[in-house]
């Protein structure tokens, strides 16, 4: 008798497991649960039948029925979880699709580089000043020791607005304007637009410079080299070597062109540096005493240095650009790369 019941219990477990596994939906699974585990389900019927067994057979059949309930319940839970997983899979995001982004704008490479240069000099102790782009002959040339009718003026082909007014050919006029207004110590950098009557792959009629000026007691030529060495290390890479080469500017004496070790070949010689291992980045020198004469400084008491660099030149070296005209065409394919 009892063996018959136990057999029926086993059958119930088998068919419950089958039914749960086959249930295609939550509804079907629930129907199957009610069929087997419900208050009037097959297991409940079997439990009822248990009562009709002789007493001595009850424990064996009872424990079989309990085990069956546990097995069926566990199978139901597993089936339910599997169904849930299945349902969830349909809602999974394809996380490889692109996210929603705000279109971003790009700062111009010249203003970015100017800010970078000025930040470095600010850390070294310089203050930033700006000046007019339309200048007088006095500030642009005369007070910088370019006498009228001097061939030195040929070095800077000038765009004129009138007999006396011109588009500044360098940011150096602010040296004079700054010294006129302040007493030493002077530590300034001057970023800004500059203009020359020149246009080709490496010359633009409008370009940008950063001027630097330090005047104080006891400033030396070696100080100029120190400040520019610190700048080159910060702007390019910490081990960037610089080289001073004698040159000529009417408003500095001695004057020097400053080269940095080539950013591509690090001095070995390549196409960028034309095999020399060096790249010219700026002009500099000790402020010529003649300039102090125009601003009422006493050259026996103070000395100083000045330098000026082309921002485009620095940017071209830093980003590997070779045509200066691209800077001003406003082509977004260029602008959005920086």
């Amino acid at each position: 008798m009892s063996s018959g019941l136990i057999e029926r219990i086993r059958e119930a477990v088998d068919s419950a497991l089958q039914a749960f596994q086959a249930a295609p939906s939550a509804g079907a699974l629930e129907a199957a649960r009610i069929e087997f585990l419900g208050a009037k389900g097959r297991l409940a019927e079997l439990m009822k039948a248990l009562g009709a067994l002789p007493k001595e057979e009850r424990p064996e059949a009872g424990s079989a029925a309990n085990a069956a309930r546990q097995a069926i319940t566990a199978a139901h839970q597993a089936a339910a979880a599997a169904l849930e997983r299945q349902a969830g899979a349909a809602d999974l995001l394809d996380v490889t699709l692109p996210g929603r982004r705000q279109p971003r704008g790009h700062q111009h490479v010249v203003s970015r580089t100017a800010a970078e240069i000025c930040d470095i000099f600010a850390r070294l102790g310089f203050s930033l000043v700006e000046g007019p782009e339309v200048e007088t002959d006095f500030y642009n040339f005369e007070a910088l020791n370019f006498p009228p009718d001097h061939p030195a003026r040929d070095m800077q082909d000038t765009l004129f607005v009138s007999r006396e007014l011109l588009l500044r050919t360098h940011t150096s006029p602010m040296q004079v304007r700054t010294m006129e207004k302040t007493q030493p110590p002077v530590w300034v950098v001057v970023p800004g637009k500059t203009y020359r009557r020149d246009s080709d792959i490496s010359h633009s009629p409008m370009f940008h410079q950063v001027e630097g000026l330090v005047v104080d007691q006891g400033i030396t030529f070696a100080d100029l080299k120190g400040v520019l060495t610190a700048f080159a290390a910060a702007m390019f890479s910490p081990d960037t070597q610089i080289r001073l080469r004698p040159s000529f500017f009417p408003f500095t004496e001695p004057s020097a062109e400053v080269d940095i070790a080539c950013v591509l070949c690090h001095g070995a010689g390549c196409r960028l540096c034309k095999g020399t291992g060096w790249l010219e980045i700026l002009g500099s020198g000790m402020v010529d005493p003649a300039v102090y004469g125009f601003v009422g400084y006493d050259p026996d008491k103070v000395s100083g240095f000045a330098f000026g660099m082309g921002i485009e030149r620095v940017a071209m070296l830093k980003y590997g650009l070779d045509d200066i005209r691209m800077f001003y065409e406003s082509d977004l394919r260029f602008l959005t790369q920086f």
Binding site: Q102, R104, G105, H106, H108, E133, K193, P205, M206, L335
Partner: peptide, 13 residues
């Protein structure tokens, strides 16, 4: 730039 415009620098003339 944050609003999506890119900076242009053009000749002053």
């Amino acid at each position: 730039c944050a609003l999506g415009l890119s900076e242009s620098i053009t000749y002053s003339f």
